[in-house]
């Protein structure tokens, strides 16, 4: 069901992006926005979901939540890498630079991305068990604090290089652009849900096979 939903939403989003939304006279590469921002928001969602599962590890001692938190953060890192890649392409097309260190939004997102990359180094440097689950959960909870900082940095930044589309007055775009954006966001979120469930199922089968192997040896 989820993969089919993701395919339908993606097909709809791509059709709307290329055949429905109007051109932006000021920024011809603006169509990247419909991929870049939903990917970034999906990355934040993954990190948030990973932190929620990490909280369950520490709070309820839920063993399954450890793998769920790990898979969500893994997905978040993939979406994070895609955010950096698509953002860099958009920056080159619009600002003429692949990267601007002066933009706090970009630098903070990079810090957030590298922080979550280090999560895997920590996780795989500890033997599997409750200690690893607890350490990973604490790290994931620290990381989620960086997420709102990264999200709000665009509003706190003084350089005003990175565009602000969502303000207190609502989305600064036409109805067709906003509809397309919402469908693209739904497509990315359904892609995350699909990948998350597939990867989680794989991890669980892997763990069962390991248990079986131990029982048989």
């Amino acid at each position: 069901m989820l993969p089919a939903l993701a395919v339908v939403l993606f097909a709809t989003a791509i059709s709307l992006i290329f055949f429905w939304v109007p051109d932006d006279a000021e920024d011809p590469a603006q169509r990247i926005f419909y991929f870049h921002v939903p990917i970034a928001l999906t990355a934040y969602t993954c990190f948030g979901w990973g932190a929620w599962k990490a909280l369950r590890v520490l709070w309820k001692r839920d063993e399954r939540a450890d793998v769920e938190s790990y898979v969500a953060i893994h997905q978040g890192t993939i979406f994070g890498a895609l955010t950096l890649a698509t953002g860099s392409l958009w920056a080159k097309a619009t600002w003429g630079h692949w990267w601007l260190w002066s933009s706090r939004q970009l630098t903070l997102f990079l810090v957030l991305f590298l922080f979550y990359c280090a999560y895997f180094m920590l996780r795989f440097s500890v033997e599997p068990g409750p200690r690893r689950a607890n350490l990973s959960a604490v790290y994931a909870l620290f990381g989620v604090v960086l997420t709102p900082v990264s999200f709000l940095a665009i509003r706190l930044a003084e350089d005003f290089i990175h565009p602000t589309v969502f303000t207190r007055d609502g989305p600064q775009m036409t109805a067709s652009m906003f509809t397309t954006f919402c469908i693209a966001l739904a497509a990315m979120l359904s892609l995350f849900a699909t990948f998350y469930s597939i990867e989680l199922a794989g991890k669980r089968i892997d763990s069962r096979i390991r248990e079986l192997r131990e029982l048989l040896s």
């Binding site: 011809p28 590469a29 870049h36 890649a85 958009w90 097309a93 597939i198 794989g202 096979i209």
Partner: peptide
């Protein structure tokens, strides 16, 4: 600018493709 839009689409497409290939390999291993 079209080439940058196409490159962004391609990056997303390749990422999804690589992920599917990795998952497919893992399924074969399982």
């Amino acid at each position: 600018s079209e080439k940058y839009v196409a490159a962004a689409d391609l990056v997303v497409f390749v990422a999804v493709l690589v992920y599917v290939v990795i998952i497919g390999t893992k399924l074969t291993r399982l």
